[in-house]
Structure formats: structure tokens, C-alpha cells
Design a protein around this nucleic acid. Structure first.
Length: 199
DNA sequence: AGGATGATCGTCT
DNA sequence: GACGATCATCCTC
């Protein structure tokens, strides 16, 4: 299976637009063990001035990537056990980003399955921590540029354009009512509610 | 130096 | 649906 890199400067900088634009794009992971790739089917926006955003309380060691240029990988560890993969958004100086919550596995399913132990196909990349494990993404990937990086990069949309559903974000305690989660409606690889709900 | 917190996951009922 | 594991990070003393 071959994938074509996203063209430079084709992604929006504004956070919510980026969260929608990423749906359908392919995340490709190349390593010595082989290739693993999946179609992005679920994202969440974390906006400037948003209490749920890691950038809300200013720049720190962990979140510095959010405050750099847009479209860099922001990877952090949560609950001691899982990593979450994000793309920074907004111009240099603003601390915002988009969380990738689920992939539809496309390539390297055996490799993903090895990394994920007992997971079923459906659960390989269904959830932000699971997809990081399936693609072997950890904190050492923080700050890389997925438009040029050889190990972790973004490819053009696979298949038809997504019908986009929208809902509240999952798992957040602050600003819980804001509807900033976006997903491909009806796709069984989405990690939460996947019905088409009014935007 | 110590305590609270958390954008999760797997397991259990 | 509920619960506990587990630890980097940040905040306060």
C-alpha cells in the first residue's frame, strides 16, 4: 500500500478547521519493523483560551510544542500509562492543538497487533492511547514535523470525503459542554458515539 | 520535597 | 457502567 504525503501548507492553521480537515487524512508510521498506517476518523479541538487546553495556563516544559509553529506533533503521557498524539495549531506563540482520537487501520495490521497484544482489529487504534501504542508513538516524537518527518507523517485522504459529525469532547472535566469533537459519521472505528449529529 | 491531577485503558459486573 | 492502575507534570510549601 502506498501513500502520498500531504502537500506543504495545505492544512488550516485555525484549530477547529484543522480538526475537521484532518478527518480522512492518513497517519503513516515507518520503523525498522515495517509500516503501519491508518485513516484519521476522530479528532478534538483544544482552542486558545479554552480551560481544557493544555496551553491554557501558559507555556511549560510539557506543552512547549503547542506554543511553537502549527502542525507539529505534540505528544504527552497521560495516567502514567498512555500517550496522546496531537497537532499544534494557531500561529507561533499561541498554545492550541488538535487531539487525534482514533484511526481506521489501513496498513500494517499485523505489526499493530503485535504492539497491542490482545486487541481486536476494531480496537487496534480506537482511542488516543491505543493508536499511539499501535504506531509506537511516545514522548520522543514530540516536536517533530509530520509534513516532512520520515518516521511519522501525514498522507492524503484515503477514500471518500468524511461526513462529519460533532459532539462534546470525551473525558474532559473542564469546559465539558463545548462541542469540539469531530468524527466521521457512521465509521465503526470511531472511539465514542459515531452517529451523525447536528453541527 | 510532597501532594493533587489527569484529553486513558483494561477488567469486571 | 464503574473502578483502579500508574506516573509525568505542575503547583505549593
Amino acid at each position: 500500500m502506498t501513500f502520498t504525503r500531504l502537500a506543504p501548507a495545505c492544512l488550516p492553521v485555525e484549530t477547529e478547521s484543522l480538526a475537521v480537515a484532518l478527518l480522512g487524512c492518513v497517519l503513516v508510521r515507518e520503523s525498522d519493523n515495517g509500516v503501519a498506517a491508518g485513516r484519521i476518523v476522530e479528532t478534538e479541538a483544544y482552542l486558545p483560551g479554552d480551560p481544557a487546553c493544555h496551553g491554557y495556563r501558559g507555556k511549560s516544559r510539557r506543552n512547549a510544542t503547542l506554543f511553537g509553529p502549527p502542525h507539529r506533533a505534540y505528544v504527552y503521557q497521560i495516567y502514567g500509562t498512555s500517550f496522546c498524539f496531537n497537532l499544534s495549531s494557531e500561529p507561533d506563540g499561541e498554545g492550541a492543538g488538535v487531539l487525534v482520537r482514533a484511526l481506521e487501520p489501513l496498513d500494517g495490521l499485523d505489526l499493530m497487533r503485535t504492539r497491542r497484544e490482545a486487541a481486536t482489529i476494531r480496537d487496534l487504534c480506537r482511542g488516543p492511547g491505543r493508536l499511539c501504542r499501535a504506531l509506537a508513538i511516545d514522548r520522543s516524537f514530540d516536536g517533530l514535523d509530520p509534513l516532512t518527518d520520515p518516521e511519522l507523517w501525514l498522507a492524503r485522504t484515503a477514500g471518500k470525503r468524511a461526513r462529519v459529525g460533532r459532539s462534546r469532547r470525551i473525558g474532559v472535566t473542564k469546559a465539558a459542554r463545548r462541542r469540539l469533537r469531530f468524527y466521521e459519521a457512521g465509521n465503526p472505528y470511531v472511539s465514542g458515539p459515531a452517529r451523525l449529529s447536528p453541527a
